[in-house]
Amino acid sequence: MQDIVDKIRSRYDVSEVTEQRENLTFVTVEKDQVVPLLMQMRDQEGFSHFVLLTAVDWIEEGVFQLTYILNHPGKKVDLGIRAHINREHASMESAHHLWQQVATYQRELKEMFGIDFPGSPRVDEEFFLEGWDHTPPMRREFDTKKFSEQTYFPRPGSKSYDPREYMKQKLYCDDYEEEQ
């Protein structure tokens, strides 16, 4: 694995390498180097199996992390390629031409994270959602609890008491009030 990482380092701007396990290494590169790197890994290094593509929302830093994982069936190692893209007008070069299933991942990311992949087939078609006009739901700022409270009617049930507050009311609450 080390030789592959060295090769990547020699040609790309690698900002971080994490050897997670003996058969799994992550490298972080610039976003515009991802597709060339994927292609090189597939065609020259033998990472022929594309495992997954997904995004992680680091909302605090204002970036999406894209993670591509490749597998080398011969050497039996996995390589994770990470890149960061800006959350604002998030867009990434499409890799749909490299493996047939990549377009599906990119379509999902467009819908769930709002990351655009210009040129990717059917990227704008609805995937899981139907008639969704909210924030892309996998973005961290989309609050599922708030959404469900606004959208649905909760079934009225009994109130739950906090043991601590309840004991205070029952056992030692006094009516002292500070002077205003």
């Binding site: 109130k159 739950s160 008491y161 043991p163 601590r164 309840y166 004991m167 029952k170 056992l171």
Partner: peptide, 29 residues
Amino acid sequence: GACESICETGAIRMVPVEGVETKEGDSGL
């Protein structure tokens, strides 16, 4: 209320019940 805290579906609520008194070491819920 540890059961309530771990319940991932929110199925458990802590409620006062008749015959159980709140006292030191027992919330009565």
